[in-house]
């Protein structure tokens, strides 16, 4: 799943339209939108760190996220000298309040340049050689508890700089700026999807696992052993049908013993 977070409705609107997202009525603390296939969701959080942190937690609770999901904070930001309308991926987030930093891991060919970002408690026009926003540090701190650094990113579009400060920014301009960078956002998602799929593939339950769990009783530790043995089975005995072998077993313990014995008795080759 892909989880998008925007502070402002005007940042969210072009994304809602592009990804054809619908409002999920049952969740009313924050507005959450979702695509028909439930692959993409978007939450409008409101301005500031507290709102963002609450929204990420809420989204996680409402939609039951998983470790291989993609998390993106998309919005506008200020910068001293990057031209208006340009997009930047964030490679370092620093919270101005306590000077703590986080480092989103850009391990793909990014569709735009990357730079550092400072999250402020209050708006400022004292521009620096860094992006300014008011949510990213909270977004990242929460999302990193739920996912992995390679799949959690902030993409910011420059809305103001030393030449044109925040006074020139309005909702309509923001919508247009975001809409103009939809392709960059699509490309970013395209870079992240294979990484997400890889995480999902390595965290997926092994074949037959659910069936075994339903048929026999396993303690928590035995469930872990079962998972490991089923994986080993698929690697060591890929052509042997597992079900007839275990069918007569009366307990989880004997199932584990049967699997272990068969694997141990198989001839092990590390290569074909």
């Amino acid at each position: 799943m892909i989880h998008l977070f925007c502070a402002l409705p005007c940042e969210a609107e072009p994304l809602i339209q592009h990804f054809k997202l619908s409002d999920i009525k049952e969740f009313d603390l924050f507005r959450i939108y979702q695509s028909k296939d439930k692959e993409i969701s978007l939450t409008t959080t409101g301005i500031g760190k507290l709102n963002m942190a609450a929204a990420v937690s809420y989204q996680h609770a409402c939609l039951k996220t998983s470790a291989g999901d993609i998390w993106l904070n998309i919005g506008v930001a200020g910068h001293a000298n990057i031209p208006l309308g340009e997009a930047r991926l964030v490679n370092k987030i620093t919270d101005e309040h306590d000077n703590a930093s986080w480092y989103p891991q850009i391990i793909f060919n990014s569709p735009c340049a990357s730079t550092n970002l400072i999250t402020l408690d209050n708006p400022s026009t004292e521009y620096q050689d860094a992006l300014f926003d008011m949510e990213a540090s909270a977004f990242y701190q929460l999302a990193i508890r739920l996912g992995t650094a390679e799949l959690i990113h902030c993409l910011k579009i420059i809305s103001d700089n030393t030449e044109q400060n925040t006074a020139t920014v309005n909702a309509d301009k923001v919508k247009k700026m975001i809409a103009a960078k939809i392709q960059t956002i699509e490309k970013l998602i395209g870079c992240l999807k294979p990484l997400s799929a890889e995480i999902h593939s390595i965290t997926a339950e092994p074949k037959h696992y659910q069936h075994f769990i339903e048929k026999w009783h396993f303690t928590k530790s035995e469930s872990l052993q079962l998972s490991r043995l089923l994986r080993q089975w698929s690697l060591c005995l890929p052509d042997v049908d597992i079900m007839p072998l275990v069918a007569e077993n009366k307990s989880g313990k004997t199932v584990l013993n049967t699997l272990r014995e068969s694997i141990n008795n198989s001839e092990f080759a590390i290569h074909d």
């Binding site: 930093s101 986080w102 480092y103 391990i107 793909f108 650094a149 990484l195």
Partner: peptide
């Protein structure tokens, strides 16, 4: 791309990262 950090552990020791994915482009 050059990114400054105070101590390397901020990047290297952070728990929520994936060795397998990072190996693609260290």
């Amino acid at each position: 791309t050059k990114i400054s950090c105070q101590r390397y552990g901020e990047v290297f020791n952070s728990k929520s990262q994936n060795f397998r994915l990072q190996k693609k482009q260290p």
